[in-house]
Amino acid sequence: MPVAHILASCMGGIRTTGDLVAWMQMTRKMRLNEAKQYVADKLGIKVIDLIDEEIMRPLREELGIGTLVAIPGAEKGILAKNKIAKLLNIEINSVKLFQSKLK
C-alpha cells in the first residue's frame, strides 16, 4: 500500500528531493509549498524541478547529499545527512551526535 501512495503522489525520496522537503516540514513546521520553495531556493532550481530525476540525480551527486543509485566512494547515510544539515541550515540530531564524536 505505501508503494501505491509513493507511485501516485510521493516526491520521490532520494530519487529527487522528498527527503529534503520532509526535513523542512519536520524541523520548521513548514507547509508543503513553503517547504518546496525553501528547498528549491537552497538548490538554486525551480520548484517544478524538485521532482525531476534528470536534474536531481547529478545535482545530488555533486552536492554529496546521497543518491538512489549506489556510487562507490560517494557520500551516503550519515555523511550525506551531514551535508544536508548544512545545505538546509537545520539541526539533525543524528548529525549532531556524529559531529560531537569527531571532536
Partner: peptide, 21 residues
C-alpha cells in the same frame, strides 16, 4: 486502473511502520 497527481502536486509520504509490510 490507478490514478496519480499532476507533476508539481506531489506531497511528502511518511509512514507508520511500512517496513513491517
Amino acid at each position: 486502473r490507478i490514478v496519480s497527481v499532476n507533476p508539481g502536486e506531489e506531497v511528502i509520504v511518511i509512514d507508520d511502520g511500512s517496513v513491517l509490510g
